[in-house]
Amino acid sequence: MRPLLLILAALAVVVALAWRHWTHRVVRERHRIEDALKHLFDQEYRGRHASLTSLKGTLHLPDGPVLALVARMQALDLVRARGQEFDLTPEGERLALQVVRAHRLLERYFADEARLPLSQVHAAAERHEHSLSAEAANRLAADLGHPTVDPHGDPIPSREGDVPPAVGVPATSWTPETTGRIVHLEDEPPISFAQIVAEGLRVGQTVRVIERTPTRVVLTDGENEYRFAPAVAANVFLAPAPAHTAAAGVVRLPDLPDHVLAEITGLDDRCQGFSRRRMMDLGFTDGARIEPILRTFAGDPRAYRIRGTVVAVRRDQAEHVIVRPLDTATRGLA
């Protein structure tokens, strides 16, 4: 009796382990396929073609497993091989778009609502993208207000699978001395993205290229200078700047002297999600009159009179408010 029980128990353990191993393998294979599809989509979007080598680099896998994975994807009719290169089938593209959409929506969520540092947003989205169903992605999109770009400036595919074409010119080919808005920061390879973020560049920022040599590219936002190797600067994409930030006579709120009345002309595009809603709730809207009235011992935060109330705001939030100081003649009207 006893040996029989023991054998049964051992058998149960083996079955349970095998089941776990098998389900784990199935899940892992699905994740790898999705990662591979994402890579293929990204290459096609940039007008390049994926190869075995590029797949190996992205998935961090040796030759054997990559070949097996590609064979499996061909069997599932997700991928077509054309010589050395691979293309997505319509079904493959549909799946790829789903994963890309989930990834970019999650990035938006982690950056705006969870306020994760920008350098960690990509990794966090990588961890969660495989478990976000298409329907959950739609709900997330609605909650976030149907965003169109992720925090790096990459377009988010719509639920119907439409992707706007890539915009922007790399900083390495941008005309020097003309103002441009950062529309996209390429997040691959992570090392150069980390450098860009650490230097303080953000999507939505207005900058100017002031120096372009074969060894370095220098950008400025008017206050700080950002120096990059051309290989890194090529990951910063610029587009013509919209009118209001380039307008004359405006300053950022922290630069407004105490007790000087000003009119808000807009909120910076870098301020999104939770922070933006909070500022709007408090009445930081175009045309509102604002006056800095209190400053603490550390100089930050400052308190401002706006719409009849006094609101304290930290410098990094106030940075996003663009104001036009009103001259003394118009002060009486306030």
């Binding site: 960690q120 922070s275 500022m279 935060p301 109330t309 609101v311 304290a312 939030q317």
Partner: peptide, 13 residues
Amino acid sequence: LKGEASAFTLELP
């Protein structure tokens, strides 16, 4: 609890 400081907006009533 990694993360950046969120919006600090404080009304001084």
